[in-house]
Design a protein around this nucleic acid. Sequence first.
DNA 1: CGGAACGTTGATAGCTATCAATCGACGTGG
DNA 2: CCACGTCGATTGATAGCTATCAACGTTCCG
Lengths: 226, 226
Amino acid sequence: MAALSADEADFLHRAGAGAASLWAPRSLLEHTPGEFASPRYIISGWAARVRELRDGRRQLVQLLLPGETLTPHLNVRQDGSTVQAITLVRTVDGTAIRVAAGEPSKYPGIAEAVALAAAHDRALLMEQVVRLGRQTAHERMVNLMLELHYRCSAVGLVHDESFEFPLTQEALGDLLGLSVVHVNRTLQLLRQQELIQLKHGRLTLLNMAGLAEVAEFKPPRLTYAN
Amino acid sequence: MAALSADEADFLHRAGAGAASLWAPRSLLEHTPGEFASPRYIISGWAARVRELRDGRRQLVQLLLPGETLTPHLNVRQDGSTVQAITLVRTVDGTAIRVAAGEPSKYPGIAEAVALAAAHDRALLMEQVVRLGRQTAHERMVNLMLELHYRCSAVGLVHDESFEFPLTQEALGDLLGLSVVHVNRTLQLLRQQELIQLKHGRLTLLNMAGLAEVAEFKPPRLTYAN
DNA sequence: CGGAACGTTGATAGCTATCAATCGACGTGG
DNA sequence: CCACGTCGATTGATAGCTATCAACGTTCCG
């Protein structure tokens, strides 16, 4: 990862100093009709990209956590999905960052970071595909927990293998392609196996080795060339 | 979509004129250990990004068709998956294109096209997530066929709702998260319903309206700003 | 205190996987 | 030219994972 120049660091400092927006739980940060909203970065809270089928089935395509953006691609907007806040979400405007990333000769470090973030987003989508395509309910749940542990850890939200976990069982079902009832039973089994503790919206991984045995999770390793 | 300048068009013409590489069916265009190969664009043939689990389960994360690239993100390399040729695949080197895309002030049209391609790749991954998470076997199959019809159509490979379809039933299973046996039965049902014809590696969509009724597919609509 | 949201439990149904076998097409070697 | 092996497709029987339905418990809050 390229170090940022003093100039870039200063730039980012100013970019992050803008006023934050607040989004209530269940509110939509992004609608289907796709007006061209400015890019936003999540400062705190969890959100999810949601797709709904005609008959009401819901799929949470991806979770969006602090440090991540709703729109990893420069200046491109796509619709067909919405982004919904799960908890209270705080965002900052990312326009300045995107503009800077569009001038790689001037801001090489920022351009690189934006490209890496987009690739990271893609790697996580691929992980979600594997979960849904070829893993059992038990494995999906564990793999997701390991992924979230990794992602939260990257932004300092994990302490003693424990972190805030604001997903309802219904949300977990929509994320993992399972029914609420089955999510409930899967969680109970994990608790009974003493692999996790989950209560009051906080998840603790009690046995990392045991969890890794149920479902491997490899953090995406991204490398930037040049 | 921004028009390319004459300069850019000329540039792309030279970029595509390089020698093509050939890849035999089942050969790997990209390995896990991730040496930093140059970016490649597929000129003809089908390939798939594959992830394998410890116990041998396989998931085809995405299909890669003519006009698409294995690595949509500029200069970023990630591993954990491989890319395998399904048919004979022909590729050209995309290094020059990436370099040009890295100079948006000089080559705005190319930079935009590369960004749109990356967003397109992401939209298709999202579609795959929805398929695997919330659709039945029947719906998955139809949705996939509609997506492939759309993608092939975009590069002129569709004639009379008919196009080359080189996937074995095993590959379809690994792509859609189904067993081979169930893929077979699903296909038979679709044939029996006179929705499709599939033989000799060619798929014909016999009833677009009927297919759309089974599983909607909306092509990703991407817009570029500025 | 009533209600809403979320979590839990038991019974049953159903979709899809697995197992096993057969068949056809194709390519190769004797 | 034909036997043989391989790969892909097909079929039938059975098992199993997960969904659905329905009811109840719990927590929280206006």
